[in-house]
């Protein structure tokens, strides 16, 4: 069974600490959700797990199936079974969606083995159909001209074709209307299995109505400050995070927005990383 372990992880960007001691274990068959205010490091955590070169690991470790992945390049992490559905999937002009996914699937094959393209086309089309992606998807350039919803569905399409062991979904609900959210939720839920561990990052309850988590974590100031069950979601949805700050004695000092990007959902915000113990 797959297992992702994050141990006392501290990570920074341009000398500023963003993740300030994250501890988390995601095992196959389990669905975790991380919620939290803007700028607390949720998207940074997702990027760091995938090995984005922008971030520096100051201390701590990330293990996949017991092996540290900190020294592994991003592509190897992916081939070992990690997947990140991105909040803002980039557009790659001139590269067709099909060529991209075919190359990614081929990269996972044992040396000397080749992808049977004819067979794969059917898999691709079935997956696209399940997500109501429409015809012509394979020939469209990767994410170029896609609506926000199409980009998110394309992330889930890739996830279904790459069959990861641990998938991190970073605000997969943003940009989705109610129908698309339901569709994405149903597709992800259909992928749930003892072989797949899910880590979802979101601001809103609505995604978690469709992909029901086993554990909910709250991240504030670069740390997971509270973990619990689904009851946490309802309380956050109705009361926000102030009660938690008071309960845990978290004192966030506001600072002027920095000019650099922290995580993709925190472009203009930076919370003080100090969390009172």
């Amino acid at each position: 069974m797959a297992k992702l372990e994050i141990k006392n992880l501290v990570a920074s960007v341009e000398g500023k600490i963003i993740l300030n001691g994250v501890d988390l274990v995601v095992s196959g068959g389990m669905t975790h959700a991380i919620m939290g205010p803007n700028g607390t490091g949720k998207s940074t955590l997702a990027s760091v797990i995938m090995g984005h070169p922008k971030y520096k690991i100051e201390s701590g470790d990330i293990l996949l199936d017991g092996e540290s992945i900190l020294d592994m390049p991003t592509d190897e992490r992916s081939r070992r079974g990690l997947f990140l559905a991105m909040q803002n999937p980039v557009e790659v002009p001139g590269v067709t969606n099909f060529d991209f996914i075919r190359t990614a699937v081929s990269a996972r094959l044992p040396k000397g083995e080749h992808l049977r393209v004819g067979k794969f086309i059917f898999r691709f089309e079935d997956a696209a159909k399940a997500l109501k992606m429409g015809s012509g998807l394979s020939e469209r350039f990767l994410n170029q001209g896609f609506s926000g919803g199409e980009k998110k569905r394309n992330e889930i399409l890739q996830m279904s074709l790459l069959s990861p062991k641990i998938a991190v979904l970073d605000e997969i609900d943003s940009g989705l209307d109610v129908d698309a959210l339901k569709l994405v939720g149903e597709n992800v839920t259909a992928m749930k299995s003892p072989e797949l561990g899910l880590l979802m990052i979101t601001h809103y309850q609505r995604l978690l109505d469709y992909i029901v988590p086993d554990v909910v974590h709250i991240m504030i100031g670069g740390r997971l400050v509270k973990s619990g069950g689904k009851e946490l979601i309802a309380r956050i949805d109705s009361e926000g995070y102030d009660w938690l700050r008071e309960e845990l004695g978290i004192d966030e000092l506001t600072e002027k927005p920095e000019r650099y990007s922290l995580g993709s959902c925190a472009n203009n915000l930076k919370l003080n990383e100090q969390v009172k113990k």
Binding site: M50, H52, P53, P73, T74, D75, R77, S78, R79, F83, L84, M86, P89, V90, V92, F100, I101, T103, A104, A107, R108, Q158, L162
Partner: peptide, 12 residues
């Protein structure tokens, strides 16, 4: 763009 492709297991 490079990170996106690498994150899908495609070699550098």
């Amino acid at each position: 763009e490079l990170f996106y492709l690498l994150s899908r297991g495609i070699t550098n």
